[in-house]
Simulated assay, not measured.
Amino acid sequence: MQAIVLAGGYATRLWPLTKDRPKMLLPVGETTVIDELLSDLENDDRISDVFVSTNERFAPDFETHLEESEFEKPRLSVEETVEEDEKFGVVGALAQLINREGLEDNDEDLVVVAGDNLFSFDLDEFIDHFEEQSTPSLAAYDVGSKEKAKAYGLVELDDGEVVNFQEKPENPNSTLVSLACYAFPSEVLSQFDEYLSSDNNPDEPGWFLQWLQSRQTVRAFTFSGAWFDIGSADGYLEAIDWALAGEPLIADDATVENSRLEGSVQVLPGATVSDSTLARSVVFPNSQVTNASVDDTVIDSEATVENIDLSESVIGSYTTVAQDAEDEAESAEEATEVVQN
Rank of each mutant, 00 (worst) to 15 (best):
V273N: 08
G263S: 08
I4Y: 10
D49E: 15
N200K: 03
V155R: 01
F221P: 08
Q340A: 12
S293T: 13
L310W: 12
D107N: 14
S317Q: 14
T297S: 13
E161S: 13
P27M: 00
Y195M: 01
V33F: 02
L41W: 04
G92D: 05
F130H: 10
Q96E: 13
F223A: 10
S274Y: 00
L249W: 09
F223S: 13
T277I: 15
N117D: 14
L25F: 05
M24T: 15
S293Y: 10
L38G: 08
I315F: 07
S276I: 12
S198W: 01
N43D: 13
P136S: 09
V163D: 00
N43T: 06
P205R: 06
A251P: 02
E337M: 09
E30Y: 04
L249V: 08
K73C: 04
E257V: 15
E42I: 02
D159I: 01
D241I: 09
E330W: 12
L196G: 01
V111A: 12
V33L: 04
D61C: 07
F130I: 06
A226P: 04
N200S: 06
F126S: 05
D158G: 09
L118E: 08
S197A: 05
D252K: 13
S178P: 00
P172S: 15
A180N: 14
P60N: 05
V143G: 02
F121I: 14
L110R: 07
V52S: 06
Q166L: 04
Q323I: 09
D300N: 07
P205S: 07
A254G: 03
C181P: 12
H65P: 02
